[in-house]
Amino acid sequence: MTTGAETGERSRSRGQRTELFWALLFLSPWLAGFLVFTAGPMIASLALSFTDYDVLNSPSWTGLENYVELFRDENVVQSLGNTFFYAALHVPLSMGIALGLASLLQRAGRRANLFRTTFYLPSITPAVAVGVLWFWLLNPQVGLVNRGLHLIGIQGPGWTTDPAWIKPGIVLMSLWGLGNTVVIYYAALRNVPKELNDAAVVDGANSWQQFRYVTIPQISGVLFFTLIVGTIAALQLFAEVYTMYFRGQASGVSDEARFYIIYLFQQAFEFFRMGFASAMAWLLFVIIMIITAIQIKLSKRWVYYEGETG
């Protein structure tokens, strides 16, 4: 004999199973894609990272040799250094400038749409075109950037020729595509409740205090998102720099522009060292995971989610 409670529980669990079935069914296209095109290749690259593999012949097991070499290869260290330098400059600069532009957009009134489109347009320029364009813009002798600096009495540096200025030049180029972030920040700024700022004004807060203590906490979730995504993208920079310095003939300054993914690409597809390149990919994966974990840990101190209490 079954009680009413048991019958209710059974029908609820049947309902949950049906719900799970339908959920999985609808998720299955994405799951299949993820398994075949993301998880599968990732696991394959993990396996290959323990082998000597040139694609043209069978992989041969080498154990941890590739990982040991990662720490011995000076180019790995240098390319990581180049990449960190770029990320450390690009991420805060792009966030700061994008936030500044988004704030200006907020005050632009009816013309905001025009400016928003203008800011966003460069983000849809293909990476290769950006690389070619900026290689010209940054030319020390005839480039528009140095010509502009000359007009205000500044002798521009050798953005594409002086090893000390190659990476800052690349950072400058990267700011070209921050329209995406501007649009995200603009949407976040528009969602900040007006009453909060009004209350702050009543309490005697000036513009900076309103921005610092009302706006920033209110959009901190979005800032955190762009920080994570921006950092990951910065650590994986490839196409623009490859186009500028590594396509065709030797550029003459390759060391300073050799970013981690570029070196990985060279190892895999120029030198046929797919095993070593796979180990490099996994090292970057671990680095990104660590940086992201640190950012998530630190976010508890400054990111505010309205739905959360306490």
Binding site: N139, Q141, G158, T160, T161, D162, S251, G252
Partner: peptide, 11 residues
């Protein structure tokens, strides 16, 4: 030197 040369030749 090379930096000057590159700045010129790239143009």
């Amino acid at each position: 030197g090379q930096e000057k040369y590159l700045g010129f030749s790239q143009s």
